[in-house]
Write a protein that binds this DNA or RNA. Structure first.
Lengths: 112, 112
DNA sequence: TAATTACATTGCAATATTACGATTAATAAA
DNA sequence: TTTATTAATCGTAATATTGCAATGTAATTA
């Protein structure tokens, strides 16, 4: 059906899954890394940088923006995108929590 | 097209994206968390636990297994699944590296 | 051997994602 | 005002994902 049964899961599980989707495409990872590198928050240079079509990059940017991971401010004709600082604290906290939970289980040595 | 242009991106970006897909569904997060909790590495109790059909759970388990995140060993009629300890070190290292990279950028204060 | 149990696989339907050309909207420059 | 320039949006095609019923497979039990 292609539709996720979100009602079966906890808010946190759904939130993690939603955020993970942002990272589930190499272009979006590349975009985030590029924004981290060029702190000046460059925009459609990404099209040249990544080699995808303008419409495709725009689509990826929208997804990242909708999740609150980046924000964009209009700068004349172009748009300045940059990482949304506040959000990243929650994101890394959520994922670190998950990884801690999972790796702790392993280190306790009861795994098969 | 629904097909990702992996050749445009680095090995690490593609690896991160691939792994993120594992977390991009709440059922798979729930499965991993359940395996972490019941270290005894329980199997298709998941069907009752999660409320999805047997075939659906089996499919999610296969995806996690193909990524090397879990492993399963036959135990008579049933199968014991558990977290694959070695893999988790690499996974958390990769994601921590990404988050460090992104949050460091923010804390340096040049964001818009 | 026959029936049962526990999963995996197959086949299918519904929806989501990825990608891009074409179009549109808005600002800047001529 | 006309003409770029920049990027969002629309429409469409191809592929991927999610979910389940039905079926297949292998080990266990009667």
């Amino acid at each position: 059906m292609g539709i996720t049964k979100t009602d079966l899961f906890s808010t946190e599980q759904n939130e993690l899954a939603q955020l993970a989707k942002a990272f589930a495409h190499p272009a979006r990872i590349a975009i985030l890394q590029y924004l981290a590198k060029t702190k000046s928050c460059i925009n459609g240079t990404l099209v040249q940088e990544l080699g995808l079509a303008q419409a495709t990059i725009s689509q990826h940017l929208r997804e990242l923006k909708e999740l609150g991971l980046i924000k964009g401010s209009i700068e004349g004709v172009s748009v300045n995108y940059c990482l949304n600082e506040e959000k990243w604290e929650r994101v890394s906290a959520l994922f670190n929590g998950l990884f801690d939970q999972l790796t702790q289980s392993c280190s306790s040595g009861d795994c098969c």
